[in-house]
């Protein structure tokens, strides 16, 4: 199981600041994203490649980055600070 943090619009759209993916035991960001998309039909577009950014252990990463269940993973839309 992996715990995922959500921020901004994604947090609001999914009405939660964290979610858990029971089936995920490790793999790439792409695999985790696919698992999330498949777990709920309404999440398919929410976790689409290019639509959301991913940070692993508070560093932005790309699709090929490996993730283990003990990592801190966060999904969010492109940032708008400053």
């Amino acid at each position: 199981m992996i715990r995922i943090l959500l921020f901004g619009k994604l947090r609001e759209d999914l009405d939660r600041s964290q979610l858990e993916c029971d089936a995920f035991e490790g793999g790439t960001v792409a695999e985790l994203r696919k698992m999330l998309q498949d777990s709920d039909p309404s999440w398919s577009d929410k976790f689409q490649k290019g639509a959301v950014l991913v940070a692993v252990n508070q560093v932005m990463v790309d699709e090929a980055c490996r993730v283990s269940p003990s990592d801190e993973v966060a999904f969010f839309l492109p940032v708008t600070g400053g």
């Binding site: 901004g8 609001e12 940070a55 492109p78 708008t80 600070g81």
Partner: peptide, 25 residues
């Protein structure tokens, strides 16, 4: 400032008289 605006994890939500809206990048 240029790097902060695209890399630092902040998200703005505008409060307007017509409701609240997340600012898009």
């Amino acid at each position: 400032m240029d790097i902060l605006k695209t890399q630092a994890p902040f998200w703005k939500k505008e409060m307007t008289r017509n409701g609240d809206f997340w600012v898009e990048a």
